[in-house]
């Protein structure tokens, strides 16, 4: 039978050893409880597209954070060609992100469907890694929300 890939045992060990803060994040808890997921919206509005319109953009963001779309397969490269797994604070290796997504979904987002859970887990990871702050994200969300509603009432 197939052996366990030693690279992944190593990844799991490295990731577990970091003792990342696993407490909930208030802003994301609020979105989890109040945000309306695509399953619900598409049913209500009678739209048959199975994915929310931002799905591909989220994938591209994850790949961008991994350092380009070739980076998810970093682990497939010969040792000497690999990018350092933990060193670069500005990157989130895709295998690491997936590992964290699994843990975070178990802990906080098990009731949220895909891809909303992927988005929450990504934001969670970025905040806990110090890449963005919770305050900063809340402020920027408010600005985006206002921007998206600028036209409200104009065409009635």
């Amino acid at each position: 039978m197939t052996d366990i890939n030693p690279d992944f045992i190593e990844l799991d060990k490295q990731m577990s050893d970091r003792e990342l803060d696993s407490s909930p994040i208030e802003l994301l808890e609020k979105i989890k409880q109040e945000g309306r997921v695509w399953d619900e919206l598409s049913e209500e509005y009678g739209v048959d597209n199975p994915d929310p319109p931002w799905r591909i953009s989220l994938e591209a963001t994850c790949d961008g954070l991994a350092g380009g779309y070739w980076a998810p397969f970093n682990i497939c490269l010969p040792e000497e060609e690999r990018q350092p797994v933990m060193a670069d604070d500005n990157k989130i290796d895709s295998n690491e992100r997936r590992w964290e997504e699994d843990k975070l979904v178990d802990q906080h987002y098990a009731d949220v469907p895909f891809p909303e859970r992927q988005l929450l887990a990504l934001a969670h990871t970025m905040i806990r890694r110090g890449m963005i702050s919770e305050d900063e994200l809340a402020k920027h969300m408010k600005a985006v929300d206002e921007r998206l509603h600028m036209a409200d009432g104009l065409d009635d």
Binding site: D3, I4, N5, F73, I75, C76
Partner: peptide, 8 residues
């Protein structure tokens, strides 16, 4: 643990 990447 299982090797999700061996095919890749």
């Amino acid at each position: 643990h299982y090797d999700r990447e061996h095919h890749v």
